[in-house]
């Protein structure tokens, strides 16, 4: 079995995330990491591999030069090889553009199973997996909180707003997993050493047969008009609990705001 795992390189959420002058997410001037939510996808791939006879895991990322760090981390966790799609022209792509590049890169792998995270921690759109399934004609099993692969049958539990659902499909499939699905492992020392020798292929748009006019800021189907830092919230009133006085003032506040 061949698993392709799509992982994204994102600005660290605990650092000061910002935008570049052209309104794109600044991915170069800030500390970046493998999107935390994609660690769950890598972990799921590793667990599926443990239960399969012959299984290879390829991680694919679309992103600028530093995005290689996301691949490296995945390899350290235990993935077998990486594919890094990097091309100046991709800069500024929206989800539609990103999904096009990703689809072409994934397609070449002829995978049985494509795994994604539930959302990227920067864009948090949760749309790229569905777009990939649409472009690649794969069965879509997304927002999985439990995944079971049995021969060619895949079952995923999805906890949606109104109900929990069990969804079933036959390989090849595309799965996205949530942070409920597993507990991602930390790379071991052995894993870190082994990752250094694992192959990482670098591809450009030309390699994928994509015309540069199809991606990037100019080709995006959406346009950011304006962005503003949220005005700092004016400092609130903070009171001490003080044996019931705090509760009283809280209730007064709620009443003054017409919540009671």
């Amino acid at each position: 079995m061949k698993i392709v795992c799509c992982v994204k390189y994102v600005p660290d959420a605990t650092a000061d995330r910002k935008f570049a002058a052209d309104h794109t997410v600044d991915r170069v001037g800030v500390d970046g990491v493998l999107s935390e939510l994609d660690e769950y996808a890598v972990e799921e791939a590793l667990q599926i591999r443990e239960g399969a006879d012959d299984c290879e895991i390829i991680v694919v990322t679309v992103g600028p030069e530093p995005a290689r760090a996301a691949i490296l981390k995945s390899l350290q966790m235990g993935a077998d090889a990486g594919v890094h799609v990097v091309d100046e022209a991709i800069h500024g792509s929206d989800a539609v553009g990103t999904s096009l590049v990703l689809a072409k890169a994934v397609e070449r792998q002829q995978a049985d199973l494509v795994l994604c995270g539930m959302a990227s921690t920067d864009g948090s759109m949760s749309v790229v997996p569905a777009m990939l399934a649409e472009r690649l004609g794969l069965a879509q099993l997304t927002f999985g909180t439990e995944v079971a692969v049995d021969g060619t049958t895949v079952r995923v539990r999805r906890d949606d707003d109104a109900a929990s659902e069990i969804i079933e499909a036959t390989l090849p499939v595309l799965i996205s997993v949530t942070d409920q699905a597993n507990e991602p492992r930390y790379p071991s020392f052995k894993g870190i050493m082994a990752a250094k020798k694992k192959p990482v292929q670098t591809l450009t748009l030309a390699d994928l047969g994509i015309d540069s006019s199809e991606v990037g800021t100019e080709a995006a189907w959406t346009k950011v008009e304006e962005m503003r830092a949220r005005p700092p919230r004016s400092a609130g009133t903070i009171v001490a609990a003080d044996d019931g006085a705090g509760a009283e003032r809280l209730v007064e506040f709620l009443a003054s705001q017409k919540f009671i």
Partner: peptide, 9 residues
Amino acid sequence: ELVDFGVVG
């Protein structure tokens, strides 16, 4: 940092 009203307790 976010609150309009807070109780420490």
